[in-house]
């Protein structure tokens, strides 16, 4: 079972998220699938399967730089996590306004109501 590490889990989660986007008609499930996509990408880049005994990249510990984990993905993914949270928050706010006007959480029913409004 040693082919299963963080990268493979990330790819599987990414395609689960894409499946949720394609196959579920509920708008809340679309927003959840977007969150799953973001989490999968973050898992993919953080995981590093070469050496499992890497130390944190901090200078005061007496470790050689070759044994340290890569700090650039960690810094970039903090930003990506914040962006993921703000996307989820904005999408949920848009959904709440949409629910007040349309009264449905289904993409197809909302589309037919929007066509009637034209």
């Amino acid at each position: 079972m040693d082919w299963f590490n963080g990268e493979v889990a990330g790819i599987i989660l990414f395609f689960i998220g894409v499946y949720g986007l394609c196959a579920r008609r509920n708008i809340i499930k679309t927003i959840i699938s977007l969150s799953i996509l973001q989490a999968a990408i973050i898992l993919y880049i953080i995981s590093d399967d070469a050496y499992s005994s890497k130390v944190p990249p901090i200078i005061s510990t007496s470790a050689h730089p070759i044994q340290m984990a890569d700090p650039i993905p960690q810094a970039l993914m903090i930003t990506a996590i914040v962006i993921g949270i703000s996307i989820t928050a904005v999408a949920l706010t848009l959904f709440v306004s949409m629910y007040h006007h349309y009264g449905t959480t289904n993409w197809n029913k909302a589309l037919s109501k929007r066509r009637d409004a034209d």
């Binding site: 977007l34 990408i41 999408a91 848009l94 959904f95 949409m98």
Partner: peptide
């Protein structure tokens, strides 16, 4: 009313595209 559905659709599909870009 119509702009809420269109705006939600636009936002969601663009965020999916950006998730692909980040990957």
């Amino acid at each position: 009313k119509p702009s809420l559905y269109d705006g939600m659709f636009y936002f969601a599909i663009n965020m999916v595209a950006m998730a692909f870009f980040l990957f």
